[in-house]
Design a binder for these strands. Structure first.
Length: 430
RNA sequence: GGAGGCGUCGCCUAGUCCGGUCUAUGGCGCCCGCCUGCUAAGCGGGUUUGGGGAUCAAACUCCAUCGCGGGUUCAAAUCCCGCCGCCUCCGCCA
């Protein structure tokens, strides 16, 4: 949600943001007009209401004929107040509708354009040259089946397409990965959280997920609840309608949860294996911080993601996502993409967004303004970033595979799988 | 699923029957000032949140806010309806 004061004082910044996103610029002027109508509506209503309050006090004191006369005027006034209230409410509702349509103002430096206009910031590590090693790399599903780690056939039997079982070492590997991520987060000062995966409409709307991409979200109409696509949703709602204290620095949470995505409109994309699934697990970093710290915090989240990628020894690149591909809440977004040998390309494994005050405004997360000193409040910034997800298993299996189909376990994960340094391939020779 | 009780400005609390000096009482905590070798005590003042107007900014002023949303009324913390949350009991199920 936009700061209406910013909109009034600096509409050009908002217009430029809309342009970079490829979104509707005229929305800015519609908002300005609606805001003006709302303010005059409120002023009219409040003037009449004040008069009514004053007369009401006289009625209480008066008696007899005097009272009867007063009642006649106040009755009339009550009608007027009611009508003005309706006008004022309508104007406010119209403004709210427009406000919800406006996406977050992008951060300076964000590449303009759409999905393909990202900028590669760096490439880290080098992809293995399987040809030089004389190996034809298997893809993650073939490896997963060989190791008894992934069962998509039975996933489909039980739950349908895009569902799977992680079995044996697959289940262990996921738990190891996520536990390792939690431990890293705790060491960095995060509070680990296991969050609800069903949330109320207000919270889902507050995080910005019920906008243009609402068909990605599972909805349970019988209970009026939504299944979260990430624990970001629950963690953003955690401090909703609260005034929190950030004087000691950002509040950092590491959420562990199942994540659910409908994957509507991705028919035929990534149908093999577990790259794109309806349900997976994720450890998500979430930070509440002061607006002036948000940029630095964003870079810290990215650094923690890269630290985690280094632990599982994956080659990856970092991209600066273009304005049109940010989603409604983010002002800036960096994705880390790991190399997937079977596809010969990089695939997203983490994503970190700086949502500035966009979510906090909708959810009512505030702090005492440290600059004002008069006890006034202001909205905080929220940021999120992936620390590990089920999808990482795809890249880990493929990058660490050996000729016989066995898979090496990265050193950092070995303590989490009972000291195993290799996932053996029982079906393969050796 | 059924029955009952409760929900007031950080915490506790008065007010709700019987609508109007409620501009929501009092205490605790907290903040500012006075007093005082220091501290404590004492004294005085302040202390919900959101919004409108005014202002360079303030002071100031107005509106809303007693769990949330409607309704009745000239007027609602107070009366009526719906919802949410917490607690107690019963039923059902692990």
């Amino acid at each position: 949600m936009i700061d209406l004061r910013l909109l009034r004082e600096d509409p050009d910044t908002v217009r430029a943001s809309q342009r970079a996103r490829g979104a509707d610029e005229s929305l800015v002027d519609q908002l300005l007009a609606a805001e003006e109508r709302r303010r005059s509506g409120i002023a009219d209503f409040e003037r009449a209401r004040a008069e009514q309050n004053a007369l009401g006090k006289q009625v209480a004191k008066a008696s007899g004929e005097q009272k009867a006369a007063l009642l006649a005027t106040t009755r009339e006034l009550a009608e007027k107040v009611k009508a003005l209230k309706a006008d004022s409410d309508a104007a406010a509702a119209e403004l709210d509708q427009l406000t919800l349509r406006l996406d977050n103002v992008v951060e300076t430096g964000t590449p303009p354009g759409g999905e393909d206009d990202y900028v590669v910031l760096r490439e880290v590590g080098t992809a293995r040259d399987f040809a030089a090693e004389g190996i034809t790399p298997r893809d993650h599903l073939e490896l997963g089946e060989l190791l008894g780690a992934i069962d998509t056939e039975r996933g489909a039997k039980v739950s349908g397409a895009r569902f799977y079982f992680l079995t044996g070492v697959g289940a262990r590997l996921e738990l190891a990965l996520l536990m390792c991520a939690v431990d890293q987060a705790v060491a960095a000062g995060f509070t680990p959280m296991i969050t609800p995966t069903l949330v109320k409409p207000d919270v889902m709307r507050g995080t910005g997920f019920l906008g243009a991409h609402s068909d990605e979200i599972y909805h349970l109409p019988a209970d009026e609840l939504y299944l979260v696509g990430t624990s970001e949703v629950a963690l953003a709602g955690y401090h909703s309608d609260e005034i929190i204290d950030l004087s000691a620095g950002p509040r950092r949470y590491a959420g562990w949860s199942a994540c659910y995505r409908r994957e509507a409109g991705s028919y035929g994309k990534d149908t093999r294996g577990i790259i794109r699934v309806h349900q997976f697990h994720k450890v998500e970093m979430f930070s509440y911080c002061r607006v002036e710290d948000a940029h630095e915090e964003h870079l810290r989240l990215l650094a923690w993601e890269e630290e985690m990628l280094a632990k599982v020894e994956l080659p990856y690149r970092v991209i600066d996502v273009a304005a049109g591909d940010l989603g409604s809440s983010a002002a800036r977004k960096y994705d880390c993409e790991a190399w997937v040998p079977s596809q010969g390309r990089y695939r997203e494994v983490t994503s970190t967004s700086n949502c500035t005050t966009y979510q906090a405004r909708r959810l009512g997360v505030r702090e005492r303004n440290p600059q004002a000193g008069d006890g006034s409040t202001r909205h905080v910034a929220t940021l999120n970033g992936t620390l590990a997800t089920t999808r990482w298993i795809v890249a880990m299996l493929e990058n660490h595979q050996q000729a016989d189909g066995s898979v090496l376990v990265p050193k950092a994960l070995q303590p989490y799988v009972g000291g195993l340094d290799v996932l053996p391939a029982p079906g393969a020779a050796g």
